[in-house]
Design a binder for these strands. Structure first.
Lengths: 221, 221
DNA sequence: CAACGCTATATTGTGTGCAATGTGCGGCGG
DNA sequence: CCGCCGCACATTGCACACAATATAGCGTTG
């Protein structure tokens, strides 16, 4: 047993090795340690994480179903690479879906939502830029799903599945100009949430995602 | 080896047993042979389909990621049951997504789309009601994805993943009044496709799905 | 009599071995 | 010298055996 694994699994309830491998692979893909197009050899991954190939295979199936990796029968898995057009399309789709999910969330919110969002936005803006994009990405994600979860679990899950197909998007939070703009968007959305104006919040969320699409094109290419 | 399996696998290129099990489970869930809430015992399924538990486990992971079944650690999988509110929410989400996907498809279509759609609509309306809803459901699905695939592969895949979470919806095609109305909707959408009016087609697709939601509530819910 | 704990059983979770499949290199023939 | 065939290796796919975990039923005890 490798130390790293026990470290990781110490916190929280004991999870299955399959779940553990899924998490680790997601992390490493998001962090760019495993590059798009790179082959994922199951025996190699198994040794790397100190587990047998069986849970690795299950993890790969899960990631494939989520769209994070692509799978060729008898030839193994590779990290999915996305051409720019597809990336734009996925952002457009996100804009539509998250606009809707946000509307639903604001319609059905209890009174505490806006306050909890502000707290998250504070922490997000306070993040030290030196810590890398991963932290900010995670906080951003939490912020979005705080709204969606207030609406409908099933809808929120579907949005989550869309984000899975999209892990490389972490990188946008590495560009200060982008982060600044997206944070400003968040504040506008939260204002609408506080007013309880679901239509407005939804529309702003939609614009927010379209902004992210535009900014990514502009600064990252 | 059970005959049934060889029968099934004879057509087309040899697929993995995991894929085979996924297909079979989907079928049986869609057909109502495996009822929502029903437990899915992996050893039982393995024997039933003449494979070992290993590919069954992988299939269950895939279906779980797709949202078709839900999974409790150490306690096994059950066919996901959807309460009416969640069903409505999912239809609403589908309306937004498919409206967008349809817009995209019509914008990017080549000249043959409308004709191919009409052909499918003809076959769908010609279906003998006695053959049960599964055939019509499948044709309906083909019709929808013919449009979506004309737009963006990645978007279409995301729509597909949403349909997966939704297999029990087959039943709507068992009610003649519903089928009739949905067929009429299709014709209206196809008219807009033929005109190349992406906005209109998208709006009609959106309405079409909202109609399905309403009809399901009225005749089934 | 009720509630608790324990044990027996069923089911899932993981590791390991081997078969099936695909890939790349080296030799053979043109 | 170039192309093709076939063999050896690497990798995936599947089956099976065993370990870990949850559940149900029974007996015991307050």
């Amino acid at each position: 047993m490798v130390d790293a694994r026990q470290q990781e699994m110490r916190s929280g309830p004991p999870q299955s090795k399959t779940a553990y491998v899924v998490d680790r692979l997601r992390e490493e893909i998001a962090a760019g340690i495993i590059v798009p197009g790179g082959a994922l050899r199951q025996t190699q991954i198994a040794m790397r994480y100190g587990v047998s190939p069986t849970p690795v295979r299950e993890a790969l199936r899960i990631l494939e179903a989520a769209g994070t990796i692509s799978y060729a029968p008898n030839r193994g898995a590779t990290v999915r690479e996305m051409d720019p057009v597809d990336g734009d399309d996925l952002y457009s789709l996100r804009a539509e879906i998250e606009g809707f999910a946000c509307r639903l969330g604001v319609e059905r919110q209890d009174g505490t939502l806006a306050t909890r969002l502000e707290e998250l936005a504070d922490r997000l803006e306070a993040e030290d830029p030196a810590t890398g994009p991963a932290q900010r990405y995670q906080l951003n994600r939490d912020l979005h799903f705080l709204i969606f979860d207030a609406g409908s679990q099933v809808v929120s899950q579907q949005v989550a599945s869309l984000w899975e197909a999209f892990t490389p998007a972490v990188t946008v939070w590495g560009v200060p100009q982008i982060a600044e703009r997206l944070n400003a968007d968040h504040r506008q959305i939260i204002k609408a949430v506080r007013k309880g104006d679901a239509e407005l919040a939804g529309a702003r969320m939609r614009e927010h995602v379209l902004n992210a699409r535009m900014l990514r094109r502009k600064y990252i290419g």
